[in-house]
Simulated assay, not measured.
Amino acid sequence: MDASLKIEGEKIFLTPMSLEDAEDFVRWRNSDFVMQRFFIKEPFTVEGQIKWITNKVLTGEVVQFVAWDKADNVKIGSTYLINIDKTNKKCEYGMLIGEEKYAGGGRGTEMARLTSDYALQHMDMHKVYCRIMADNPASVRACEKGGFEKEGLFKADEWVDGQPKDVYFLGKFEYEK
Rank of each mutant, 00 (worst) to 15 (best):
L5N: 09
L5V: 12
L5P: 13
K6N: 10
K6F: 12
K6T: 15
I7V: 12
I7D: 08
E8M: 12
G9F: 02
G9W: 00
E10H: 11
E10T: 12
E10S: 13
K11R: 15
K11Y: 07
K11L: 14
I12C: 04
I12K: 04
F13M: 13
F13K: 12
F13T: 13
L14C: 00
T15V: 13
T15M: 10
P16A: 04
M17L: 03
M17D: 01
M17F: 03
M17G: 02
S18A: 05
S18R: 06
L19P: 05
L19N: 11
L19Q: 10
L19R: 09
L19T: 08
L19H: 11
D21W: 01
A22H: 00
A22K: 00
E23H: 06
E23N: 06
E23P: 04
E23Q: 11
D24L: 11
D24E: 11
D24G: 05
D24T: 06
F25Q: 03
F25V: 09
V26Y: 04
V26H: 03
R27Q: 14
W28G: 01
W28A: 00
W28C: 01
R29S: 03
R29F: 02
R29N: 03
N30G: 06
N30Q: 07
N30D: 05
N30R: 06
S31H: 03
D32P: 08
D32A: 12
F33V: 05
F33I: 03
M35C: 13
R37W: 15
R37A: 15
R37G: 14
R37L: 14
F38C: 09
F39E: 07
F39H: 13
F39A: 07
F39R: 11
I40C: 09
I40K: 15
I40H: 15
I40R: 11
